[in-house]
Design a protein around this nucleic acid. Structure first.
Lengths: 217, 217
DNA sequence: TCCGGCTTGGGAAATTTGCCCGAGCTGCCA
DNA sequence: TGGCAGCTCGGGCAAATTTCCCAAGCCGGA
């Protein structure tokens, strides 16, 4: 971690699209105080680059092939709790946002944001603040009005198991048979899981399960 | 349409993410011969900007909210058959590629391509050539060899679009609003897609869409 | 011109969801 | 020892969705 005030902010860019990365790099470096010291196009390389370069801020798109971006965040934070990770993605689902923060992200900015909002978020997390774009704040605010918990870690063992089978493609009947439950119970769990995670559709549930490594796609 | 050899290539950039657009602009303009004369963040504005600026090449991400990017391609080509549209997206599913070319695209490049491949593709379509990135050529080649084809080959353009939004986590109501359809129609498509693909649950549908590159998790 | 396929939706029965409830069990804490 | 809290399991029932079947308009090809 370098002295921010003296040398600017060092940034590790993680995105699986090369030209997108190069575009970001140019936008960020035109700011003067932001320096892209490394790039990575997957979660494993991101962790390696973090160890090598120890950047002030990791700017990461969490939707990457292979290992989950959330897993990468956890790895980075486990190694270096002072690490600042700014999630930068096109997704804006409340479950993903909460999952990212509970994985240890310092900020969450969507690609719909104005460039100035993105660079300000980078400066914010470099100062140790929490940062998020307006649309994300709006989504979280609305979500918080319905008093349902945060992400996957609030689920019980049984709920996790049912979510895993569901996200894996099993029907309600298959889950009920396999776990020796009534279909009604499985349906109730299904509903409970959705309310607990804040997922509004089954698809969001599958995406959440995949993002948390519960199922492979 | 300007004289390419004398003044370089004028480009209209269409992508719904502002910072992504700004990144592309900087990458392209650093090439010397490429000039971004306008930007748009949706299909309707793209058509308007095309009419106003008459660029040599339109570089377009077809996955945008609202009207389909394919529709924008058709509009542009209907107005000006000599128009060159280079599709530039993260999706690499054969059905999408074929749909784009049959809508009138001159090229198809994925965001996984190297920046040099992208700028070369722009120069290629400006010369009137057909251009595609290596991964796209590979996918089309494999697709043409397999008798059964991808599971998504049997889906029409509208079905693909609805599946993409559904797998991305959108509710029936959101899809209906985005595409200006009744919820009933969206539900019917949902059912039709399931029967066509053989998916028995929504989760299987999401997994299929992810496996085919229609959505990222 | 006719056929076939895509797109858009209506209708109606079957099924699931959303949300309420209670009951049994376990562990924990005073 | 009692009591509370949380998980597990399911019933009930209105509301919503899914599942099919059908039809009409449009468009491109034979």
């Amino acid at each position: 971690m370098t002295d921010v005030a003296a040398t600017g902010i060092s940034v590790l860019l993680v995105d699986d699209h090369p030209i997108v990365r190069q575009g970001y790099r140019r936008v960020l470096e035109s700011q003067g105080d932001l320096h892209v010291v490394a790039e990575a196009d997957n979660a494993a390389d991101a962790y390696g680059a973090f160890k090598t370069h120890d950047p002030d801020v990791v700017v990461m798109d969490i939707s990457m092939p292979g290992a989950s971006g959330l897993e990468a965040i956890r790895n980075i934070r486990a190694r270096s709790p002072r690490a600042r990770v700014l999630v930068f993605t096109m997704h804006n689902e409340a479950v993903l946002v909460k999952a990212a923060f509970s994985a240890g992200a310092s900020g969450f900015v969507t690609k719909s944001s104005a460039p100035s909002a993105v660079v300000n978020a980078i400066r914010g997390v470099a100062r140790g603040e929490r940062a998020m774009s307006d649309d994300i704040a709006h989504i979280l605010a609305e979500d918080s009005l319905s008093p349902t918990g945060s992400a996957l870690d609030q689920l019980g063992e049984r709920e996790i198991e049912i979510l895993r089978q569901f996200a894996g493609g099993a029907t309600t009947e298959q889950i009920a048979t396999h776990l020796n439950l009534s279909m009604k119970t499985v349906q109730n769990y299904h509903y409970l899981i959705k309310t607990k995670t804040g997922a509004r559709t089954d698809a969001q549930l599958v995406r959440l399960a995949a993002a948390c490594g519960l199922t492979r796609i």
